[in-house]
């Protein structure tokens, strides 16, 4: 069983700061991390490997520093790492990204056939979730997005059983291998990596490919050139106007509020909960 996980390096949006003048990211404030959803994707691949054996590879597109997140993936338990890094890839939107990644996957496929690709549900910088399904189309394999459980993997019969999150619950899906999954955080808990993985990761050097290392690439579909979407303007969301401030002592305020809400009191469900 060969699983390839697509992993992306992203700025940590939890501590991100925006320069209010230029509306750009204050890079200094945002350390680069492994996209949290992708960490779960790697963990899931490693869990499958532990259950039925196989190899876990990770693939990333990004600047040379992205080696760091490939090492993070090795810490979690991945066996191999590939980085595609080239100026030609820069400025890609999701369409151009899925094209570049699918070309790299074709190349990895030459080394060892791929049974499954796993992506994160989305990357926290772009928040699109479009790259995964895009890759699936390009490789012509079925995608299953929003996966919350990989219940069973049957490599012999080339089948997987999956739970997919839906608006009000989940679906149980059977998919043929090879397929592509995108995973939610619920899919697993990240395990605290054992020391031997840490040491392996510290020593690990991934395979790095430039655009010329890939086969049959149409350069017009890469990077900025290959991206149909462009960012127009950036702006701070319009500030809504506040409503009424209640006045007086706290008792008066509470009373006024309850009066104001009195007409809505049929909304309150007193009977059920107030015995």
């Amino acid at each position: 069983m060969h699983i390839v996980v697509c992993v992306k390096q992203v700025p940590d949006t939890k501590i991100i700061k925006i320069n209010p003048k230029t509306n750009t990211l204050d890079r200094r404030s945002a350390p680069a991390i492994l996209n949290p959803f992708d960490a779960h994707a790697v963990q899931e691949a490693v869990k499958i490997k532990k259950r039925i054996g196989g190899t876990v590879s990770v693939l990333s597109m990004g600047p040379p520093q992205a080696v760091a997140i490939i090492k993070n993936s090795i810490e979690i338990g991945a066996d191999r790492g590939y980085l595609i890094s080239d100026r030609a890839f820069a400025g890609a939107d999701t369409l151009a990204t899925s094209y570049a990644l699918s070309k790299a996957l074709e190349k990895i496929q030459e080394e060892m056939p791929i049974d499954m690709v796993i992506c994160g549900k989305h990357a926290i910088d772009g928040d699109t979730g479009q790259v995964g399904p895009g890759i699936a189309r390009r490789l012509d394999i079925p995608p299953v997005t929003n996966v919350i459980e990989v219940t069973e993997v049957n490599h012999k019969e080339k089948k997987v059983l999956i739970k997919r999150k839906q608006i009000n619950g989940y679906e149980v899906i059977e998919a043929q291998l090879p397929c592509l999954l995108t995973v939610e955080k619920e899919v697993n808990e990240i395990e605290y990596a054992p020391m031997p993985n840490m040491i392996k990761a510290a020593r690990y050097e991934p395979t790095v490919w430039s655009v010329n290392d890939l086969n049959d690439v149409d350069k017009a579909q890469l990077g900025l050139k290959g991206s149909p979407t462009v960012v127009g303007k950036m702006f701070t969301p319009p500030k809504p106007e506040g409503g009424k401030r209640l006045e007086g002592t706290s008792d008066e305020q509470v009373r006024e509020l309850v009066t104001l809400l009195a007409e809505k009191k049929n909304l309150f469900n007193f009977d059920v909960n107030n015995s």
Partner: peptide, 23 residues
């Protein structure tokens, strides 16, 4: 921007080679 809507739109954008803005 539901699980199905996003999934479908992403696949279609790829096949039609066009831009897709998320969320």
């Amino acid at each position: 921007a539901t699980p199905n809507g996003k999934d479908l739109a992403s696949a279609i954008a790829t096949d039609l080679s066009t831009g897709l803005t998320a969320d």
